[in-house]
Design a protein around this nucleic acid. Structure first.
Lengths: 155, 155
DNA sequence: AATTTGGTTCGATAATTACCGAACTAAAAA
DNA sequence: TTTTTAGTTCGGTAATTATCGAACCAAATT
C-alpha cells in the first residue's frame, strides 16, 4: 500500500474509533484524540501537536485529555529538560480490560438482583427470567478469572 | 418491607436502570420505559398506560417503544378482541446476551486488527500492545461458546 | 523584573438531541 | 357513514451538551 493511501486509511480509522467511543459516552473530540493516539505511527503527541492535528481549541484539548487520563486510557510522560507533556495511549495489562468488563457485569448484576428482590411475585414471568440471567451472569463472572489465567499461559 | 416502601424503591430502580441505559446510547425516556417494564410488578403495559405512568407524550412513547422493539428488547402481544398492544420486556434466551457481547467484541477486534495492519512499524509500542490485545480478544471470543454450553448444563 | 511557554478554568455560544403537539391514518364501533 | 380508538409521523421548540475564547496561572526563560 502506498504511504499516502495508508495514512488516509489511518485517518478514517480515527474517525471510526471516534464514533465507536462516542457510543461509550465520550464526547466527539475526546473520542477522536483517543483514536489519534491509538492509530498513528507517531505514538507520543504533545499538547500543542494534538491541538494542531485535531484543529481544536486548547481548552477542548485540555478537558479531553484530562478525561482520558482520569479514565486511565491515556497517560503522559515528560522528558528531562522539556516542560512539555507527551501524551500516549496507555498500554497496560490485559487484565485491566477484563476487570473493566467484570465491573460492568457486576454493576448490572446488582441491579438485576435488586429488581428480583423487589418483585411482589417471585414467580412472575420477569422474575423467573431475571433469575436465570442472574445465575448466568454469576457463572460468567467466575469464568473471567479463569480467562485471566489462560491469557497468562498463552503468552 | 412495607408496600409503599417497596414501590418507592422500584421507582428508584427504574431511574437507575434509566441512567445505566442512557450510557448505552438510549434516550432518557426510552431507557426509563425499559426500566418500567423490567421492575414493576405489572409486567404488561398498554401504550396508554405507559404514557400515563411516565407522564410523556404519545409521540415520545411511540418512538421509544419502536426503538426498544427494533433492538429486540421489548415486544408486544395482543389479546383476541382487544386492539391494544401490551408491551413487555422480552425474556429470550441468555444466548442472545452473549451473542450481543460477542458481536461487540468482534467489531472491536476488527478495528484493532486494522490499526495493527496500518502501522508503519510493526514493533512499535502500540503495535506490540495491540497485538497482545488482539490475541487476548480472540481467546475470549472462543471461550464464549464454551460458556453458552456451560449455561445449558447448569439449568 | 518582564516575557514566554505550556497549559487550566470558566462563562458564553453553537450545535445537537430529546421531546412535544398538531395533524394524520387505519381499524373498529356506534 | 360518522365517531372513536389506538396509535404514527413530522416540524418546531426546549433542553442539553460540546466546544470555544478570554482571562488566568505557575514555571521557566530572557
Amino acid at each position: 500500500m502506498e504511504e499516502v493511501e495508508r495514512i488516509k486509511k489511518q485517518k478514517e480509522l480515527i474517525e471510526q474509533i471516534g464514533r465507536e467511543h462516542e457510543r461509550e459516552g465520550f464526547q466527539p473530540v475526546t473520542a477522536r484524540i483517543l483514536g489519534l493516539l491509538m492509530v498513528m505511527d507517531k505514538e507520543e503527541y504533545t499538547f500543542e501537536e494534538i491541538v494542531e492535528e485535531m484543529q481544536i481549541s486548547k481548552s477542548s484539548a485540555s478537558t479531553a485529555l484530562k478525561n482520558l487520563e482520569i479514565r486511565g486510557i491515556v497517560e503522559y510522560i515528560t522528558y528531562p529538560g522539556d516542560r512539555k507533556r507527551y501524551f500516549r495511549f496507555v498500554s497496560g495489562e490485559i487484565d485491566g480490560l477484563i476487570d473493566e468488563m467484570e465491573n460492568k457485569l457486576k454493576r448490572n448484576l446488582v441491579i438485576i438482583n435488586q429488581i428480583i428482590e423487589l418483585k411482589k411475585d417471585p414467580n412472575s414471568r420477569n422474575s423467573n427470567f431475571l433469575k436465570t440471567i442472574s445465575k448466568g451472569m454469576e457463572l460468567f463472572i467466575k469464568n473471567l478469572d479463569n480467562l485471566k489465567i489462560a491469557y497468562k499461559k498463552e503468552q
